[in-house]
């Protein structure tokens, strides 16, 4: 399908460059070093950060923001380290993902990935306790991903059945594990949780 120039959004690149991490977008000269060294491209050949950058530069806003490939970047920083133009591709992809999340919240697109749900669940436990709490994270993430509590519990059991047993046997997690009766089953909480509340409030306020 040829690009319809009248559908392009000439401001999209500036929108990205206004996000932290997106500042260097226009420095890209399409050499493809990012994509050639990408460990994800090696496995999923259609994954092409160079192309996502070019589409962004052209203003293909909707195509970029609804592209499911945005969410399979492993954040390994190989592209950022190798880019001769210091485009900071890893951070740039993060900037684009954040715009996509805003668009989804506004009801304009649908993100075809569970990753935003996972990140939200992670940050909720962090906000609440100050530390990562695997169990709480899983109890929020799986039901959201599967669309119902029952399906979520089933998926969680499937992932955790063997893995959890391994952790339990080594005393790393689970009731009566080596490091305390409910190791990993209950959240570790920091004392100054008030500060975290303030941090999250401030960051969310900026997003609005």
């Amino acid at each position: 399908m040829p690009i319809k120039t009248w559908e392009l959004d000439p401001n999209f690149k500036y929108e990205i460059m206004n996000e932290p991490g997106g500042e260097h977008l226009t420095a890209c000269y399409q050499c493809s070093t990012c994509t050639l060294g990408c460990p994800i491209t090696e496995i999923i050949p259609s994954y092409n950060p160079r192309k996502i950058i070019q589409m962004s530069l052209l203003g293909m806003r909707k195509e970029v923001l609804s592209n499911a490939d945005l969410w399979i970047c492993a954040l390994c920083q190989t592209c950022t380290a190798r880019c001769p133009q210091d485009v900071m591709i890893c951070e740039l992809m993060g900037a684009i993902r954040r715009i996509a999340e805003e668009e989804e919240a506004a009801g304009n697109i649908k993100i075809e990935s569970a990753r935003p749900l996972f990140e939200k669940a992670f940050l909720h436990t962090l906000q609440k306790y100050g530390r990562l709490y695997d169990m709480g994270l899983a109890l929020e993430y799986y039901p959201n991903r599967e669309g119902s509590k029952i399906k979520g519990m089933k998926a969680m059991m499937k992932d955790y059945k063997d893995f959890g047993m391994r952790m339990f046997k080594k005393g790393k997690m689970g009731p009566l594990g080596g490091g305390g009766v409910f190791k990993g089953m209950r959240p570790e909480k920091i004392k100054e949780r008030e500060v975290l509340k303030k941090i999250f409030e401030k960051v969310e306020e900026k997003e609005k």
Binding site: P20, G21, L126, G130, R131, L132, L196, I199, V203
Partner: peptide
Amino acid sequence: EDWNCCGALEAEDPKLVIALNAR
């Protein structure tokens, strides 16, 4: 004492990462 989680790679907003780790 009372250290907090760094946000790992799940905190994608650099402003959030910076606030969490400044503490």
